[in-house]
């Protein structure tokens, strides 16, 4: 029974990793690709680790797996956040289908503010 469950978790986890990889290739720009790279990999990795801990059935392995999952969920979004932010500031444009860009407006507004501080300071 637990073997079957472990198999399901391992297969499911690997499947989501595969989805993440396909997503990396198919999606149009950096930001969309980060979607696939963060969501599907954390989920897939979680499945694989849980499956592994079910197979080994030892406290040590289970604790390690749970800690690994915890830190994965803690670090993956931070990495995605920094990569997409750096990407936005350094170059790659948003893909052509993009409909909204509030961040660009915000950055422009801040730049204008930095260039002419007296305009806001004298009031």
């Amino acid at each position: 029974m637990s073997d079957a469950l472990a198999a399901i978790l391992l297969l499911g986890g690997s499947f989501f990793m595969l989805v993440a990889s396909i997503g990396l290739i198919r999606l149009p720009d950096v930001y969309c690709r980060m979607h696939a790279a963060t969501k599907a990999t954390t989920f897939g990795m979680g499945g694989i680790l849980l499956g592994a801990s079910l197979i080994f059935q030892s406290t040590t392995v289970t604790t390690q797996a749970l800690l690994a999952i915890f830190f994965l969920f803690l670090t993956a979004p931070v990495a995605a956040h920094l990569i997409s932010r750096a990407a936005y500031k350094r170059g790659p444009d948003l893909c052509d289908d993009t409909t909204h860009d509030a961040y660009g407006k915000y950055l422009e507004g801040r730049k204008a503010e930095e260039e002419s501080p007296q305009r806001y300071g004298d009031a």
């Binding site: 989805v19 396909i22 997503g23 149009p28 599907a40 289908d97 409909t99 660009g104």
Partner: peptide, 24 residues
């Protein structure tokens, strides 16, 4: 998280990419 992964799955594996990305 579950919904998110099903959604990514649907988008990535659909034969024709139909996305309208944007920053809000």
């Amino acid at each position: 998280l579950l919904i998110a992964n099903v959604q990514v799955l649907k988008i990535v594996l659909s034969p024709k990419l139909s996305i309208r990305p944007g920053i809000i």
